[in-house]
Design a protein around this nucleic acid. Structure first.
Length: 416
RNA sequence: GUGGCCAUAGUUCAGUCGGUUAGAACGCCAGGUUGUGGCCCUGGAGGUCGUGGGUUCAAAUCCCACUGGUCACCCCA
């Protein structure tokens, strides 16, 4: 085998694509019902856009981006997530000037150069949405409710929602200092990873998977106890609305998102049906990002979710997409009838009826086998005899019944 | 980036203590008295045993390296 797809990339084969289309269709339906409109941005942007928005110190920017120089020497990066591009487009196209609130969604490939494992690829696919221009808790909850609705709509029940508030530019720095002081007292007992984070991102230490770290930090102060009045009120409102909407959640004061731009609400949806990479979706509020990227102060909320992880669950649950099988397979009983079969198949197709016939000059038996393999609903055998009499037997391949139909009005028969 | 496990037909796998023509199932192709699929029967095609070294009279089998896959860590969707 000479060529293989690049490590961490995968082909979505014809046998799988109908499942993807089924999921994508459902996702788009939900987005449209919540009145979010699609935004399609380029899959590469200036490296600095991502560095600025996601955060220089995050793992994504620090070691996972696909970055290269184009021929003019500009530094280009394949998008590692969708929000930065959406916000860039929002600012560049002055979307905020014509509407107070922009509700957009996206769906497409993202790129991160990590070691592949279950539920993690280097080219993977995300869908997500952004509500740009609203400070209200109602908007946070709309985003969360919409995310949940997508999974419900797809028949997935094995998920749980965790929420937190990560504060704002006023209360978070204060809390971080308090936490840092606490962490420094036990720094020598923490894992090396956590020790490194004390200075740069102390809240990550609380989110550590290391059991010993968890024990050591069990009684540490949580951000939820150090929110200022505005953040606290916002958080209470989010919780009250979730309850009002009947959406179960748990508050996890240790939840931190991997991107720097989040403020106030952060949430994550995890599934027990996945492996170690169990996050189905994550999101939250980012009130400072638009301004950070050169726009006006524009409070916003959004989320992103992984397609591959969703597909893993759909497959595991045995959820099957609608079949894309032909309505009818027309078989030629002899050589002289082949041209008629081709013409008629073509006529059915151009009249909106999915149909198939043999292109390989195969025997009648092989053609029938093919009709079966394609799971065609009907088969029709046509030879000189049928063309002379104008009548042929239409066979229902599911219940094995047959009926005589007029050969010259097949299109009419299926279109009625 | 680090570590564990794995690599034999298209696919899933078997292959004894190293031993001579490397097997099965499914899939694919062709037939089963000359015009009807699914089940069944018969036959057929299809493998540099991941690659390169080494040990040996002899390697799919033992050893080493590399490549790829996979799972986990890290991190995240």
């Amino acid at each position: 085998m000479n060529y293989r797809s690049i490590k961490g990339t995968k082909d979505i084969l014809p046998s799988e694509s109908s499942m993807w289309q089924f999921a994508e269709r459902t996702i788009r339906d939900v987005f449209h019902q919540f009145n979010y409109k699609e935004i399609r941005t380029p899959i590469f942007e200036s490296t600095s856009l991502f560095a600025r928005s996601i955060g220089e110190l995050t793992d994504i920017v620090g070691k996972e981006m696909y970055t290269f120089q184009d021929r003019s020497g500009d530094s280009i990066t394949l998008r590692p997530e969708g929000t930065a591009s959406a916000i860039r487009a929002y600012i560049q196209n002055n979307l905020g000037e014509s509407l107070p609130l922009s509700k957009v969604y996206y769906i497409g490939p993202m790129f991160r150069q990590e070691r592949p494992q279950a539920g993690r690829l280097r080219q993977f696919h995300q869908f997500g949405a952004e509500a740009i221009g609203s400070p209200t808790a109602e908007t946070d909850v709309e985003i969360i409710a919409m995310t949940i609705e997508i999974y419900k709509r797809l028949g997935i029940t094995s998920y749980s929602l965790q929420i937190n508030s990560v504060g704002d530019e006023e209360c978070r720095p204060k809390y971080k200092e308090i936490l840092r002081d606490e962490l420094r007292k036990i720094a020598d007992q923490l894992s090396t990873e956590s020790q490194k984070r004390i200075d740069q991102n102390p809240m990550r230490v609380l989110d550590s998977k290391d059991e010993n770290d968890q024990k050591l930090t069990a009684s540490m102060p949580l951000i939820t106890d150090h929110l200022n009045e505005e953040c606290s009120k916002h958080f209470e409102r989010v919780k009250a609305l979730l309850t009002a909407y009947g959406i179960p959640y748990t508050v996890n004061g240790r939840l931190v998102r991997g991107l720097d731009y989040y403020t106030k609400t952060a949430f994550e949806i995890t599934s027990t049906e996945l492996g170690s990479q169990d996050a189905l979706a994550g999101g939250g509020r980012y009130d400072l990002l638009v301004k950070e990227l050169g726009g006006k102060q524009t409070p916003s909320v959004g989320f992103a979710a992984g397609m591959e992880r969703l597909m893993m669950i759909l497959e595991k649950k045995g959820i099957t997409p609608p079949k894309q099988n032909p309505k009818i397979f027309i078989a030629a009983a002899d050589e002289s009838s082949r041209e008629w079969v081709l013409k008629t198949t073509m006529a059915l197709r151009t009249n909106g009826i999915a149909s198939e016939c043999d292109l390989l000059s195969r025997s009648l038996k092989s053609q029938m086998k093919e009709a079966d393999r394609q799971q065609a609903e009907f088969s029709l055998v046509v030879g000189t005899m049928e063309l002379e009499s104008g009548k042929a037997l239409l066979k229902n391949l599911t219940d094995h019944t047959q009926q005589e139909i007029s050969v010259n009005d097949i299109v009419g028969f299926f279109n009625k």
